[in-house]
Amino acid sequence: MDRLLLLTQAISDLDEEKVFQILDELIAENPSDEEVQEIVAACQRGMIIVGELFDSDDYYVADLIFAGELMSKAVEVLKPIICSRKKDTIGTIVLGTVKGDLHDIGKNIFKGMAETEGFEVHDLGIDVEPDVFVAKVKQIEPQIVAMSAVLTIALNSMKNTVDALKKAGLREKVKIIIGGNPVTEDSCKRIGADAFTTIAGEGVDICKKWIVNSIA
């Protein structure tokens, strides 16, 4: 069987030993840029299967987190080779857990997935004041602002952050997505965001669509 297929399979099985055995073999053969891209793509296909297994309730959050760990370790191993050539970023995201909330697991999963999709992500961390979002958006001029929260009380902070962006005249220059357990369509409307999600992967898909549509 093709080793790339085996790699995809090993990632989707969350078989760490096998993943790095195959990766070590492939790297030892001094792959070309094109081949490295194929290796990354094989890993990503594995991650897509992980997502499907999550949707079908074969995997749960603990498995997703371990898959994220595997993927970031794989990227770590491939980085020295990837870094030797310039990779185009597809878009820029300013990301943070809003003021009043210190939870960051969902935010970090989103970040990892967005980065593997080619986004440049500026992570402001947790308990982020609206002004800090505003300052970063001014400085970086991202296409997307992504806000995360777990606590219901942080939904107000999301609204305050959107209001602060409006006040600074930046609201129309960015798309805003909110994510986390408490967000709903209602709260999305009230907050004035463009999209909401409770699933990190879905959030990344929304961001990709925005980028594609803005280019088209």
Binding site: K99, G100, D101, L102, H103, D104, I105, I126, D127, E129, L151, I153
Partner: peptide
Amino acid sequence: FVMSSEGVMQHPN
């Protein structure tokens, strides 16, 4: 366990 800017005790990872 730390107190957030809003005065609520929370548990970061």
